[in-house]
């Protein structure tokens, strides 16, 4: 593929992202779910404890980016299976990767926008961001990474959003508990640390801790960023392969 063709495909991915935002984000209980869940989890954990505010805000931020970015990508494919929009898309001059990347763009955009809520909340409570650039990079990378992760759930060839939502919930909740959100990775036993290293959310949380006054970060910054980038590539490649296989079964 030449550069021109790449640019064309990128523009078409943006068209898909725009469509997703208009259909799925501007009117969705799914989205509210994505915002409320981290809020409640956070409150449930925080109430009655005496933890440093910057530690808490870092955890909340990680969790928010995670839940918002993974909230909609899982439901796009099953919804469009049911509403019979997929064949039209499949007949359009775009590759499967382009279509999926469009979904990821919309979802990441949304995840990044909502991440401003806990960041501003933190600032209001007196947290200083010592590494804003690293933090921004981490949030962007993680939002893409988690969005692509959501696509893995939706690759099961079904038109029932409930099936996909159940699967994604079953994976997402346990992940939060092994990702150093509530307990720093460094404080975990060695098996817990090993488990944590398998979750992409661990690396975002770690980066957030680093960005808020250098506290408690377990991995070097370069490791966090590399891990998020690698997870993103793996998720994207896997999603493309899986969706390629499931598409004919959806028609």
């Amino acid at each position: 593929m030449g550069v021109d063709e790449m640019m064309d495909q990128l523009k078409r991915a943006c068209a898909i992202a725009k469509k997703d935002i208009r259909i799925y984000y501007l009117n969705g209980p799914v989205v509210i779910f994505g915002i409320l869940v981290p809020g409640f989890l956070f409150l449930a954990f925080v109430i009655g404890r005496d933890l440093p505010i910057n530690f808490l805000v870092a955890g909340l931020l990680g969790m928010t980016v995670f839940f918002t970015s993974t909230s909609v990508t899982p439901v796009i494919a099953p919804t469009e299976t049911q509403t019979r929009n997929l064949e039209r898309l499949a007949a359009a001059p775009i590759s499967i990767t382009t279509a999926l990347f469009g979904d990821v763009l919309a979802s990441a955009f949304f995840g990044i926008a909502i991440s401003l809520v806990p960041v501003l909340l933190g600032v209001a409570f007196g947290v200083t961001i010592t590494h804003p650039f690293i933090l921004a990079l981490g949030i962007v990378l993680a939002a893409f990474c988690f969005s692509a992760m959501g696509l893995i759930f939706s690759s099961i060839p079904t038109g029932a959003t409930s099936t996909v939502m159940m699967l994604s919930t079953m994976v997402r909740f346990p992940l939060v508990f092994i990702s150093g959100v509530f307990i720093p990775v460094g404080d975990l036993p060695s098996w817990g640390q090993a488990l944590a290293s398998l979750s992409p959310l661990t690396y975002l949380t770690d980066l957030c801790r680093y960005s808020f006054q250098d506290i408690n970060n377990h991995y070097p910054v370069s490791v966090d960023i590399a891990a998020l980038a690698i997870f993103l590539m793996i998720f994207m490649a896997a999603a493309t392969k899986l969706h390629e296989r499931s598409l004919p079964k959806r028609l």
Partner: peptide, 11 residues
């Protein structure tokens, strides 16, 4: 124009 296909009803 695929068989049984739809436009996006929310658009």
């Amino acid at each position: 124009v695929p068989d049984l296909s739809n436009a996006y009803s929310e658009l």
